[in-house]
Amino acid sequence: MSAEESIKQELENKFPFFKDAVVIKRQRRIFADVPQERFFDVFNYLVRDMQFSHLCTITGMDEGETFGVIYHLSRDGVVVFSLRIHISHEAPKIKTVTGYFLEADAYERELEDLLGIKVEGLASGQRYPLPDNWPKDDHPLRKDWKLKSEVDHA
């Protein structure tokens, strides 16, 4: 059984609700959807017990009705496991993963700035990547964001 198969088997044994959610796209790529409430259980298991020790990045996307947040984890740089949660459009909120990965700081700030997803537990700090005088509730990466007619740049 290939590495990807054994990962899928192990996850399905540990979390039975996961049964049809893990998809093996090709060699070394696994995608999975998880409901937001069970996210940290699965994440904790992947990072602590299955040695997915590298967080490649966190992708946020506007899916129209919901926001999708994908955590791309990799084990020894070989298998990339992309774990996705869906959160509501109205009051998007997630908890930080900087307890597991320090570099998630920059990725989560990007979510906050460009999509407006609140990340609880994120240390206060500078905005990234938008400039400091960008309006606070303007989130460019949302689908309904329109190009404004003029933005003042000193």
């Binding site: 490649c56 990045t57 992708t59 996307m61 506007d62 994908i70 791309h72 992309s82 320090l102 570099e103 700081d105 920059a106 990725y107």
Partner: peptide, 27 residues
């Protein structure tokens, strides 16, 4: 260098995410 692309069947992508190596190193 990490790229994530999501397509929705049209000729324009739905989401393109690029994570350049320097972002991972600068922290």
């Amino acid at each position: 260098d990490f790229h994530y692309v999501r397509s929705n069947g049209t000729e324009k992508p739905d989401r393109v995410k690029v994570r350049a190596p320097t972002l991972a190193n600068v922290q």
